[in-house]
Amino acid sequence: MTPSPPFELSVFINCPFDEDYAPLLQAIAFCVTDLGLHPRIAPENSDNSANRLDRVVGLIRGSMYGIHDLSRCKAAKAGEHSRLNMSFELGIDHACALFGRSPLRGKKVLVLEDTQYDYQKSLSDIAGWDIQCHGGDFVKVVRIVVNWLSGKTKGTPMGASRVQGNYITFQEWYWKREIGRGASQEDIKAYPTIQVLFAMNEWVSLGRPS
């Protein structure tokens, strides 16, 4: 079993895992990876002997940072239920920081939403927090995440534009490699996000090849 990354270098990402959200999730994960930290998402733990909530709690407790996107906490059409998982996991993270022992009390949280002030309709208790709005734009979410993590990482700081450029370079490298291995474009699009995250780590460890 691969050992878990250190607490102080781990970033729990709480967001939807559907196809529509995948570009945002992958952009967020790339920011984290490119800045020398480790993205932690629930699908990384495939141990079916543990229920999903226990796996999520373990990731939250093992991560100093938490990025929580509340943009899907509302119903999209009549008769549809709102999705509460993301706000529930934000509450767990906040409780860890409030009531946990050191080092949990040093946890930091970034809350994202799609449309400004949407969260107030379903989670008004966090009014006054610095909620960041991305509008479904992966370029904007890169800027938000890079700025939030600025000063929290080791090594030479990187600006958002540089990270965005690195992301394009990574994608070109990754697609070229996978096609060279016999994958089609549709195959690559269907890859699970956790597989793409492994490739991001590999790309950084190889010195960010072009």
Rank of each mutant, 00 (worst) to 15 (best):
G128P: 01
A127H: 03
S122R: 10
A42R: 02
H134R: 08
I126H: 11
E89K: 03
W203D: 07
T2H: 11
G66F: 03
F138S: 14
N85K: 02
V204H: 01
P23T: 07
H68E: 06
R181F: 15
A183I: 07
F170G: 06
I179K: 11
S205F: 04
S205C: 08
L25N: 13
L53C: 03
I188H: 04
R143K: 13
D137Q: 05
E89S: 10
P103N: 04
L206W: 00
L59I: 15
I28A: 13
G58H: 09
L123G: 03
L59D: 12
Y117F: 06
F138C: 12
K189S: 05
Q132T: 09
F138W: 15
L35N: 01
V111P: 11
F17I: 12
F99L: 08
E80H: 02
A78H: 09
P3H: 09
V109E: 01
I13R: 09
D125N: 09
Y119K: 02
A27Q: 10
L110T: 02
K74M: 10
T2Y: 02
G106C: 04
A29M: 05
M86F: 03
F138P: 13
P209L: 00
I144P: 01
I13N: 08
L197G: 06
R162G: 15
C31V: 00
R52Q: 13
L206V: 01
T33V: 12
K77F: 12
F30D: 10
V56G: 03
F7I: 06
C31K: 03
F88R: 14
P39R: 07
